[in-house]
């Protein structure tokens, strides 16, 4: 959190992104304050992943603005964990150290920090093992460690627990909470509604490239304001084809 440039409140206004003649983001507005875990819900193809990719700088918005605490996007402080994280053919520790390369630390300090964060995600014992030999759950924890080690102020998670077993999901959720406790703002997508109720402070519901609803988690699940959200929670919203 060395970067002094402001980041919050984050204001997204009228964001548009189109692919193949189809609007993925269709005038999306979103406000994020500086704390907590926000969960993005919405059917497949609603634009959640594109929103995350735009926020982390992989995609340039075709129209609309993102205002980072009154300024432009800070040089650092945003981290992202992809649904399918790519791991180098290297040790577990080496994969965490990768994230520290831009910080230009001494090799010793880089290693120390990587080991410290591996300790916190419960992978210290496996630091020297090959990252590609890890199980799905371990791999996802490694991906979290790689993002966490940079001490981001905003952490974007794209379905971090998809296709994991319940105990792996539980471990990931505990780590996410711990990261939040340290003051990192978290924005994550999931299709696991139980996970949303366990983790979220607030929920953003997206459908057809727009935010339909942004509400505290209890209120969202108790009294969803929009028809789409209600159907989605009941599992009855017809899923749109992604493309």
């Amino acid at each position: 959190m060395s970067d002094a440039a402001p980041m919050f409140p984050l204001r997204v206004r009228d964001l548009r992104w189109e692919a193949g003649g189809r609007a993925i983001l269709d005038g999306l507005d979103l406000d994020l304050a500086g704390e907590g875990i926000t969960i993005l819900l919405g059917p497949n193809g609603a634009g959640k992943s594109v929103l995350l990719r735009t926020l982390c700088g992989l995609l340039e918005p075709q129209a609309g603005t993102i205002d980072w605490g009154g300024g432009r996007r800070p040089e650092s402080g945003v981290a992202m964990v992809f649904q399918h994280a790519r791991m180098l053919r290297d040790s577990v520790c080496g994969n965490v150290e990768l994230a520290l390369l831009p910080a230009r630390l001494a090799a010793g300090e880089r290693r120390e920090r990587a080991l410290a964060v591996l300790e916190r995600v419960g992978l210290a014992q496996r630091a020297a093992d090959s990252a590609r030999a890890l199980s799905g759950g371990e791999r996802q924890r490694l991906a979290l460690a790689r993002a966490w080690v940079t001490q981001p102020r905003l952490l974007l998670l794209d379905e971090p627990t998809a296709s994991l077993d319940p105990s792996s999901v539980d471990r990931i959720e505990r780590i996410v909470r711990e990261i939040r406790t340290e003051g990192t703002r978290i924005l994550m997508t999931t299709h696991n509604l139980g996970q949303a109720t366990r983790l979220a402070d607030d929920v953003v519901f997206i459908d057809a490239g727009r935010v339909c609803e942004h509400a505290p988690v209890q209120r969202f699940f108790a009294r969803p304001a929009s028809q789409a959200a209600r159907l989605y929670i009941q599992g009855e919203l017809p899923w749109r084809m992604a493309f």
Partner: peptide, 27 residues
Amino acid sequence: HDYEEEFRVLRLRWIDSVRVLLHDCRH
């Protein structure tokens, strides 16, 4: 192509990308 998004989000300098990929593709 495989790592591009990962590396871009990490804001790796291109020279670091070159070094890391050389090591990663050693086999």
